[in-house]
Computed example of a mutant assay.
Amino acid sequence: MPNLLVTGGAGFIGGNFVHYWGQQHPDDAIIVLDCLTYAGNRSTIADVEQASLIVGDIRDADLVEKLLRKHGIATIVHFAAESHVDRSITGPDAFIDTNILGTNSLLKAARKVWLDDGRERDHRFHHISTDEVYGSLGPSDPAFAETTQYQPNSPYSASKAASDHLVRAYHHTYGLQVTTTNCSNNYGPYHYPEKLIPLFMLNALSGRPLPIYGDGMNVRDWLYVEDHCRGIEAALLNGTPGETYNIGGGEELPNMTVIDRICAEVDRAFAEIEGLAERYPHAPAAKGRATSELKTFVEDRKGHDRRYAIDESKARAQLGYVPRHDFENGLRNTLRWYLDNEAWWKPLLKA
């Protein structure tokens, strides 16, 4: 698949995928379509030689058709989405527009070029989704499988569920060759600092509170973003059209455990890395105190799902997917990346 169109490729997971694909497939051209909303950053992929950034909207079907034809693209990897649950609660319209109407626009363009015009018989539309479409699990419930009934509980997850159904429908109705992956909570480099792990890391460095929703015991499966990219690659190369695969990290942890590990990792970094206290003088760790003193409990999020867990056995058996990073290793890599790449994240805090 020499030419790919990656939507949302200047965002967090999409940007990491562009880096990963460029390293693993150096001869492939990567066309990135991103409208550069607050979470998109052209600097994320500026050093990927094979990547060409087109600033545009996935809802512009004419633009997508032109890109598919001009570049001879036979593979779309669709990341573009509004993804922050809190933002979906206060402003759901943007999630409907991008996640549902945007996905439908992409599917229409792909169908027109690949099927109606008959230009590309061998093609793939790969859709990236989330475990949140399955709803919330009780403490003893089995993990989400690909056959779990959809029960989305937020405007964000409802919009992603709708987009999943559209992708499935285009396969069964029109014969579009699609695959879908539903992933668990990603973390790693280039993560916009509104999400839990980068937010708490950067707050810890500046001495700001670490706001913990509710009792802090909501459980998530944590997936290092590079492992997610490897799972997507496996689905593209080995996945069966029409199938869905769950991609998880095998690290099911309560938020409080994650927060405690972030605090411990920040404390460790200040003990091991010379000069951090001078760079971040407001951090408790710069004064020899524990980062955990910043922990603050706040009112719980509306409709906050209690537990997510991913059963990735299908991806392991059919795609050969196995995550390579445990949470301790991935968290350390993530913090060290933020410490080494201040020029990337500091401007975002001023936006």
Rank of each mutant, 00 (worst) to 15 (best):
S136H: 02
S184I: 00
A309R: 12
S157C: 10
Q23S: 14
H78C: 01
P152A: 11
T334A: 03
F79K: 03
H71V: 02
E243K: 13
Y192D: 06
G72K: 03
E194P: 00
E272L: 15
Y190I: 00
A269P: 07
L137H: 05
A290M: 10
N255D: 04
V266N: 07
G138R: 03
A235E: 01
N182V: 01
D141M: 02
P211I: 06
Q177V: 03
G214V: 07
D122R: 14
D86T: 11
L205S: 11
P189C: 11
E251F: 02
S157Y: 10
T37M: 05
A94H: 10
L199I: 02
G9K: 09
A169V: 07
R230F: 04
P2H: 11
G242D: 09
V6W: 05
T148W: 01
Y20E: 05
F17V: 04
I58D: 04
G303R: 04
P198H: 10
A343L: 05
G40H: 12
D47H: 14
P281F: 12
R69A: 12
M217A: 07
T334C: 03
A269S: 13
L137S: 04
Q151S: 15
L237R: 12
M217V: 03
V85A: 12
G11Q: 10
A169K: 09
E293T: 13
P193S: 07
V178A: 06
D131Y: 01
M217G: 08
K287E: 13
A285R: 09
I232F: 04
K160S: 01
E243Q: 14
T130L: 03
N185G: 02
G242V: 09
P347D: 06
V48S: 06
S154A: 14
N238F: 12
T180M: 05
L294C: 09
H127I: 09
A235T: 01
E146L: 08
D260K: 15
F79Y: 15
K314F: 02
L115Q: 15
Y245R: 09
V55W: 00
A285F: 11
T75N: 11
F270D: 06
K108V: 13
A286V: 10
R230H: 14
I273P: 02
A29D: 14
H25Q: 14
M201T: 11
Y38D: 13
A235W: 03
R168W: 09
D141I: 01
L106F: 10
H304E: 15
Q177L: 14
